[in-house]
């Protein structure tokens, strides 16, 4: 039995390593997409788009390994949270990879557009922030660092600010006749893709906090809903509470 558990924990480590590898692919895809966009490089854009297939394959592998681990080992408590978190993170990172692809597809729609130094500078800054947040989310996950995970929303504020600056700049350029409406819309969408990558990193931070503490980000809202339901119902509230509390053996919450 001890041998089996040992093997199970090896499997958990391997799942974690694969999630980390998936995230590493994403953190490389973001600056590559940015380079393609700034340098009007369709060939590089195509490489990033093609590279997403490898991310999808890795994502599928993680999912299947998680299902197998649950089915074969019936994990509880922190082990269960670890697997559930890996599955959640898998989706978040895979989506971030898709957003890098979207940036490349955005380039195709504005191909040939010469960006002003200000816009290029803001795009570079958004890209750097998106990479930084994604890297920090990986660090928080790999180190099971709840403090770092909790800090991600604040760190994300800078990316949000940059997006606002970028939107203001492109609207200004549009008003000055430097950008067409189509180009303005496409650039606004591209800025949104970077901002969404930051949001995914924040989501990952929340899932990491859940893995470490057992407190899910929805706990506060769920507690409120539970209280409201209890107040509205006059009978048998304790039974309902027991069902809802089945939180995979979480130590808290």
């Amino acid at each position: 039995m001890t041998e089996l558990r040992h093997s199970f924990h090896d499997e958990l480590d391997q799942i974690r390593d694969t999630v980390v590898t998936l995230a590493a692919h994403v953190t490389e895809a973001i600056p590559r997409a940015t380079e393609a966009l700034i340098e009007n490089n369709l060939e590089l854009a195509q490489e990033v788009i093609r590279g997403d297939d490898a991310l999808d394959l890795l994502s599928l592998e993680i999912e299947e390994r998680c299902y197998a681990a649950i089915a074969l080992q019936q994990p509880m408590a922190v082990d269960m949270r670890t697997i559930v978190t890996a599955m959640k993170l898998n989706g978040e990172y895979e989506r971030s990879g898709d957003l890098a692809v979207n940036i490349c597809k955005g380039l195709r729609r504005v191909y040939g557009l010469s960006l002003t130094p200000t816009l290029r500078g803001l795009i570079t800054s958004m890209s750097e922030e998106a990479v930084r947040l994604t890297r920090l989310s990986v660090d928080a996950y790999a180190e099971r660092h709840a403090g770092l995970a909790a800090a991600l929303p604040d760190i994300d504020d800078r990316l949000d600010d940059l997006q606002v600056q970028f939107i203001e700049s492109i609207f200004e350029a549009h008003n000055d006749g430097q950008l067409s409406l189509q180009e303005t819309v496409q650039l606004a969408l591209i800025a949104r893709y970077y901002e969404r990558i930051g949001d995914h990193a924040v989501n990952i931070g929340e899932r990491v906090m859940y893995m470490v503490t057992g407190e899910s980000p929805e706990s506060v809202g769920a507690t409120r809903a539970r209280k409201a339901a209890a107040a509205a119902s006059d009978d048998d509230t304790s039974t309902e509470g027991d069902v809802i509390d089945g939180d995979f053996g979480a130590e808290t919450g």
Binding site: D17, T21, A24, T27, R135, V138
Partner: peptide, 12 residues
């Protein structure tokens, strides 16, 4: 081995 970011890609 067990590295993050770029190191994870080197290991792969």
């Amino acid at each position: 081995a067990g590295g993050r970011h770029g190191d994870a890609l080197v290991e792969a």
